[in-house]
Protein backbone atom coordinates (compact mmCIF):
# COMPACT_ATOMS: atom_id res chain seq x y z
CA UNK A 1 0.00 0.00 0.00
CA UNK A 2 1.36 3.48 -0.79
CA UNK A 3 2.21 5.46 2.29
CA UNK A 4 1.26 9.05 2.89
CA UNK A 5 3.45 11.16 5.13
CA UNK A 6 2.52 14.42 6.81
CA UNK A 7 5.66 16.14 8.08
CA UNK A 8 4.77 19.08 10.30
CA UNK A 9 3.02 21.83 8.40
CA UNK A 10 4.15 20.56 5.01
CA UNK A 11 1.53 19.26 2.59
CA UNK A 12 1.11 15.49 2.77
CA UNK A 13 3.17 13.45 0.32
CA UNK A 14 2.68 9.96 -1.04
CA UNK A 15 5.95 8.08 -0.80
CA UNK A 16 7.40 4.73 -1.65
CA UNK A 17 8.33 3.53 1.79
CA UNK A 18 8.28 0.44 3.92
CA UNK A 19 6.43 0.52 7.22
CA UNK A 20 7.62 -2.04 9.76
CA UNK A 21 5.67 -1.63 13.00
CA UNK A 22 6.92 1.66 14.47
CA UNK A 23 9.59 2.15 11.82
CA UNK A 24 9.31 3.84 8.45
CA UNK A 25 12.06 3.14 5.93
CA UNK A 26 12.40 5.32 2.86
CA UNK A 27 15.03 6.46 0.39
CA UNK A 28 17.28 9.46 0.93
CA UNK A 29 15.54 11.18 -1.97
CA UNK A 30 12.11 10.62 -0.38
CA UNK A 31 13.49 11.83 2.96
CA UNK A 32 14.55 15.13 1.43
CA UNK A 33 11.29 15.50 -0.47
CA UNK A 34 8.97 15.07 2.48
CA UNK A 35 10.98 16.57 5.33
CA UNK A 36 13.76 18.77 3.97
CA UNK A 37 16.34 16.68 5.88
CA UNK A 38 19.23 15.29 3.83
CA UNK A 39 21.31 12.25 4.58
CA UNK A 40 25.00 13.23 4.44
CA UNK A 41 28.24 11.58 5.57
CA UNK A 42 28.28 13.79 8.69
CA UNK A 43 24.70 13.01 9.65
CA UNK A 44 21.18 14.14 8.81
CA UNK A 45 21.24 17.78 7.83
CA UNK A 46 18.87 20.65 7.17
CA UNK A 47 20.35 24.08 6.50
CA UNK A 48 23.14 24.72 9.00
CA UNK A 49 21.99 21.97 11.34
CA UNK A 50 23.43 18.46 11.18
CA UNK A 51 22.32 15.70 13.54
CA UNK A 52 24.90 12.90 13.77
CA UNK A 53 23.60 9.36 13.70
CA UNK A 54 24.32 7.97 17.19
CA UNK A 55 27.42 5.83 17.25
CA UNK A 56 26.60 2.17 17.62
CA UNK A 57 22.99 2.67 16.56
CA UNK A 58 23.53 3.03 12.81
CA UNK A 59 21.36 0.00 12.08
CA UNK A 60 18.38 1.79 13.63
CA UNK A 61 18.73 4.62 11.16
CA UNK A 62 20.26 3.39 7.89
CA UNK A 63 20.46 0.14 5.94
CA UNK A 64 20.99 -1.13 2.40
CA UNK A 65 24.32 0.72 2.10
CA UNK A 66 22.68 3.93 3.39
CA UNK A 67 20.08 3.77 0.62
CA UNK A 68 17.29 3.43 3.17
CA UNK A 69 16.67 5.74 6.12
CA UNK A 70 14.39 5.16 9.11
CA UNK A 71 12.46 8.39 9.56
CA UNK A 72 10.70 7.06 12.64
CA UNK A 73 13.99 6.41 14.46
CA UNK A 74 15.05 9.92 13.58
CA UNK A 75 11.78 11.32 14.96
CA UNK A 76 12.34 9.43 18.21
CA UNK A 77 15.89 10.82 18.38
CA UNK A 78 14.57 14.37 17.95
CA UNK A 79 11.69 13.85 20.38
CA UNK A 80 9.08 14.52 17.72
CA UNK A 81 5.51 13.35 18.28
CA UNK A 82 4.80 10.63 15.74
CA UNK A 83 1.66 8.68 14.87
CA UNK A 84 0.73 6.22 12.17
CA UNK A 85 -2.67 5.02 11.05
CA UNK A 86 -1.91 1.65 9.54
CA UNK A 87 -5.38 1.04 8.16
CA UNK A 88 -5.05 4.03 5.85
CA UNK A 89 -1.28 4.08 5.55
CA UNK A 90 -0.79 7.59 6.93
CA UNK A 91 2.14 8.72 9.10
CA UNK A 92 2.32 12.02 10.93
CA UNK A 93 5.48 13.66 12.27
CA UNK A 94 5.05 16.77 14.42
CA UNK A 95 7.36 19.31 15.96
CA UNK A 96 9.20 18.65 19.19
CA UNK A 97 7.44 20.39 22.12
CA UNK A 98 10.70 21.83 23.44
CA UNK A 99 11.40 23.44 20.09
CA UNK A 100 7.95 25.03 20.09
CA UNK A 101 8.42 26.24 23.67
CA UNK A 102 11.86 27.69 22.96
CA UNK A 103 10.55 29.45 19.88
CA UNK A 104 7.74 31.06 21.86
CA UNK A 105 9.97 32.08 24.75
CA UNK A 106 12.42 33.71 22.32
CA UNK A 107 9.51 36.12 21.69
CA UNK A 108 10.36 36.12 18.00
CA UNK A 109 6.96 35.66 16.38
CA UNK A 110 6.85 32.25 14.65
CA UNK A 111 6.25 32.70 10.95
CA UNK A 112 3.36 31.11 9.08
CA UNK A 113 1.58 31.35 5.77
CA UNK A 114 -2.19 31.02 5.37
CA UNK A 115 -4.79 31.80 2.70
CA UNK A 116 -7.34 34.58 2.98
CA UNK A 117 -10.99 34.25 1.98
CA UNK A 118 -10.05 34.61 -1.70
CA UNK A 119 -7.28 32.04 -1.52
CA UNK A 120 -4.47 34.60 -1.61
CA UNK A 121 -1.58 33.55 0.60
CA UNK A 122 -0.34 35.82 3.39
CA UNK A 123 2.93 35.33 5.28
CA UNK A 124 3.30 36.91 8.70
CA UNK A 125 6.86 38.04 8.01
CA UNK A 126 5.62 40.04 5.02
CA UNK A 127 4.05 42.38 7.57
CA UNK A 128 7.39 43.17 9.27
CA UNK A 129 7.55 46.93 9.88
CA UNK A 130 3.91 47.04 10.96
CA UNK A 131 2.26 46.12 14.21
CA UNK A 132 0.30 42.88 13.89
CA UNK A 133 -2.61 41.83 16.06
CA UNK A 134 -3.40 38.15 15.58
CA UNK A 135 -7.05 37.68 16.58
CA UNK A 136 -8.07 34.02 16.61
CA UNK A 137 -11.76 33.44 16.09
CA UNK A 138 -13.79 30.49 14.90
CA UNK A 139 -17.13 29.62 13.43
CA UNK A 140 -16.23 25.97 13.98
Amino acid sequence: MPIEVIYGDRPSEAVTAKAERDNLWLSAAELAKISGWELKPEGVCKGDVCVPIPVGREADFVRDNRQSFNLASFARLLGQPMLHDDKNGVWYFGENAGTRRSALKSLEAPDFELPDLDGKMHRLSDYRGKKVLIAAWASW
Binding site: L124, G129, K131, V132
Partner: peptide
Protein backbone atom coordinates in the same frame (compact mmCIF):
# COMPACT_ATOMS: atom_id res chain seq x y z
CA UNK B 1 2.67 27.98 16.89
CA UNK B 2 1.25 30.40 19.47
CA UNK B 3 -0.38 27.94 21.86
CA UNK B 4 -3.89 29.22 21.30
CA UNK B 5 -6.40 26.98 23.06
CA UNK B 6 -9.64 28.96 22.90
CA UNK B 7 -11.29 31.77 20.98
CA UNK B 8 -11.24 34.67 20.97
CA UNK B 9 -7.55 34.93 21.80
CA UNK B 10 -5.04 37.49 20.61
CA UNK B 11 -1.29 37.93 20.20
CA UNK B 12 0.38 41.33 19.88
CA UNK B 13 3.44 41.52 17.61
CA UNK B 14 5.49 44.70 17.17
CA UNK B 15 7.11 46.11 14.03
CA UNK B 16 10.27 44.04 14.58
CA UNK B 17 8.32 40.79 14.73
Amino acid sequence: LYDIINVPMTVWIDEQG
